[in-house]
Design a protein around this nucleic acid. Structure first.
Lengths: 301, 301
DNA sequence: CTTGCTTACGAGACTCGTAATAATT
DNA sequence: AATTATTACGAGTCTCGTAAGCAAG
């Protein structure tokens, strides 16, 4: 038995039991991969894959057990390298992060800037996706860390840490009727066209829940995954925006646009939607590089 | 990197950093082992061992980290084989048990007898030792399961399961003065010569504690690790015995000896010592063979 | 008839053991 | 002087890639 066989097995499963695709991904030959897997099966004395003639169709029960153990072994092999790098060369490396737009655009930049001064030799790669896509990217090893507000805390195969909390805020053009009110209520909000996040994203669940609890039916005329897109449509006068407070600052508005009538303003409303908790997640049991931990610490507040 | 290097590293540490001894244990050559370890260090980019000239003196900090991960990897490699065997040939194998004398002599026999009918192809090897020795035998991989009443539950690197509870009983020759009493008290016991277990063994702690709580100083004239040895000296008239109730049955006494005056009897005393819990332990995270789980289940009651 | 797994075979790499060397205790 | 690790080197093994074969959709 050797590690190569285990890597081959994992990749074959990841590529949906297509040996050709797995061989390609592993930069090796299909026959070699085929042989390696058969040898592993022989040595363990079990069949891992059910074969229909010459096609692999699915995993056996034994194969599922074996695969789970193999995943753990390869994770620990990776930990061996990571831990060694932490001792030998803690400064250099690669940091692949998956985050939602809001995190990538608003909460990550200062943390990454800080990281770049602490660890100038570390290459940072930023991927974007929905929370569920982020979870998949972590699982498949495409990224090291995932940052999101939804879906990321309750995965059994991921470890996670709390980063920070935030609330939604409500924004509109100064000319909007709601801007006349001294205090805006949820009821008032429900009477206007609203623009906010796609259901998967950025605490949208909390928004729907708040309206539901007040037995209100909000008129959401536009959904987007991206705070900037939402703000753009609010500027066009399509409605009132509900975005993460991370994504809105009246100072930035003042800088950005020249005309005061274009500047979005925050409506006076007292945190109508529940608190959101942004978390970072990574593979369960994975040892973190020092710079990974540094990034996480830099984002905590 | 390959698994051989990891096995070599573990064995070297187990043999106190003596490459010659490790090479011997691994049935390989010293130079090969030396080279393998240097190559592992090179590949990981760290030094694992501090060297004084040509001697390995101790582990580096990085080495300690690496070793912990290597132990986990090798455990999982072992799990791969064990899990496969559970699917492919659940009937055959080897079962190495470490137990104290009392367990080996009194509680294990029926369970092992049952196991032998369920799994006639399994070879059972029985080792004896003190609870701390048993823990060491599990740690070093000399045995698969350890069974004892002391020391075995609170090891962080071992998993364990409760098996059963038992109490101590007090035994004496029928001619002993205490046999005249309708009920024996702890105070009465403290006035006679006592024979019981060595401090490490079979719940001796509970015996001392009970006397202490009653501010009594028992006269323990003989200590042994072995219930049978204790019974033998009780038969010789050296004193009153305190043994596990597992190790004493008046029926067995009736069968064993012909003369009624030789038969030990249980004194009427109402469980003066705290309950003992016998547990089974094995390496943390180790997958159990089916027959191992069967033995454990057979011992639970 | 295309896609995809397996078998066959040979060049190159690698492993591992022996012998010699060097450094501690 | 004895013990123990490292270096050198070569025989045997193993890995892995190419080419050919063959089964399934």
């Amino acid at each position: 038995m050797n590690l190569q066989q285990l890597r081959y097995l994992r990749e074959t499963v990841r590529r949906d039991l297509n040996l050709t695709a797995a061989a390609l991904a592993l930069h090796t030959s299909q026959p070699g991969l085929s042989k390696a897997i058969r040898e592993l099966e022989d040595e363990l004395g079990i069949t891992i894959f059910v074969r229909h003639g010459k096609r692999l169709t699915h995993l056996t029960d034994a194969g599922r057990d074996v695969l789970a153990i193999v995943e753990r072994i390869l994770l620990e092999i990776d930990n061996l390298k990571r831990s060694s790098m932490n001792w030998h060369d803690a400064q250099t490396g690669e940091l692949r992060i998956a985050a939602t737009h809001t995190q990538a655009r608003y909460s990550l930049p200062p943390a990454i800037a800080r990281l770049r001064t602490q660890y100038p030799e570390v290459t940072v790669r930023l991927h974007q996706g929905s929370p569920t896509q982020i979870v998949e990217m972590i699982r498949s090893g495409q990224v090291d860390l995932g940052i999101a507000t939804e879906a990321i805390g309750q995965q059994a195969d991921l470890d996670s840490e709390d980063l920070f909390c935030w609330y939604h805020c409500v924004i509109a053009l100064p000319s909007h009727p709601l801007c006349q009110l001294a205090e805006v209520s949820l009821e008032a909000l429900a009477e206007h066209d609203l623009i906010t996040y796609d259901p998967q994203f950025a605490g949208r669940g909390h928004i729907d829940r708040a309206f539901n609890e007040h037995r209100l039916k909000p008129r959401i005329v536009l959904e987007a995954t991206d705070s900037d897109v939402i703000k753009t449509y609010v500027r066009l006068g399509l409605g009132v925006g509900i975005v993460s407070e991370l994504a809105f600052s009246e100072d930035d508005e003042a800088e950005g646009s020249t005309m005061a009538t274009d500047r979005l303003v925050r409506l006076p409303i007292d945190r109508p939607f529940a608190r959101n908790l942004t978390r970072v997640a990574f593979l369960h049991g994975r040892i973190l590089r020092r710079y990974e931990q540094a990034l996480i610490d830099a984002m905590k507040h």
